[in-house]
Design a protein around this nucleic acid. Sequence first.
DNA 1: TTTTCGGTTCTGTAATTAGAGAACCAAAGT
DNA 2: ACTTTGGTTCTCTAATTACAGAACCGAAAA
Lengths: 153, 153
Amino acid sequence: MKRILTDKQKELIESFGVVQEGMGLSPASARVDALLIVADSTELTFDEIRETLKLSKSATSNAINNLIMLKRIGYKTKLGDRKRYFHTRLGQWKNVFIDGIEGLTAYNEVVKEILINRTDSTKQFNQQLKDFTEFIEYYQKESTKLIKNWKKN
Amino acid sequence: MKRILTDKQKELIESFGVVQEGMGLSPASARVDALLIVADSTELTFDEIRETLKLSKSATSNAINNLIMLKRIGYKTKLGDRKRYFHTRLGQWKNVFIDGIEGLTAYNEVVKEILINRTDSTKQFNQQLKDFTEFIEYYQKESTKLIKNWKKN
DNA sequence: TTTTCGGTTCTGTAATTAGAGAACCAAAGT
DNA sequence: ACTTTGGTTCTCTAATTACAGAACCGAAAA
């Protein structure tokens, strides 16, 4: 078993793990995601991940599948080799950003329904709510443009 | 005890509560926040909140203080009245959005430190990471502008 | 000075989540 | 046919979170 990480790399995985926990990932998912960004090798197998992070097979399996669902990692296979080689998808961060922006839609739908059902005796309050829903729509459109226009892609 | 909510309002608090739980609030916090947006009265006291949502005093107290820390609600007092009157701060959503954007800074700092420590044998990968950190900075600047330019404020 | 009001804090418990370890499984190798 | 590989799924336990209920506390009222 080759040792994959320097001490500095371990430290970086912990820091990055912590900030990603703050963004809603489980500890194991956060560290798997971080590992694939920090490690010298950009393609690691299930067992390399498990050994390096000292996780059980179940924790490794669940973390990996969770990250795949979130589109934060992906994998490829090699001909005549059953293993999967996992890699970060940070290079495709645009998708994740766009999913995040689209996620505001569900939130906005509820706010709009609240607005429809509000008493009309609080005009100013209701107007603020309306401004807010309009801003969300504006923000969704405009920040999608920001992403598209980034470096004239 | 006056009954504050219609059935429709109760339903809206539940839907909105659920989407806000998905955004990291505890069930009680999510419902207190929703209540202050849905209720006809835009200013509710501690006991009105507690009775309406059927929460214990401790749950009410913790939820309220949590929401105040997150700047999602505020309160005012009235002369000769010890009670606090809580209200949503959705009208000041700009602050919350801006805090969210600024929150990306901590994330980006770690990514930059990872980049500094990466092997230089993965040029393309490292370049993607660099693009990403640059995009975050661009996105922070530009979306701050989006907020400022909204309706020429 | 004692009681009431408007909460806060502490203690115990129920519910949820995270993860270990073992059993399990399908496909490939022997 | 059985063994190995590369995982997945099940079961159980530990840790964390959410909350109720009661004790508590300071300021004001009586």
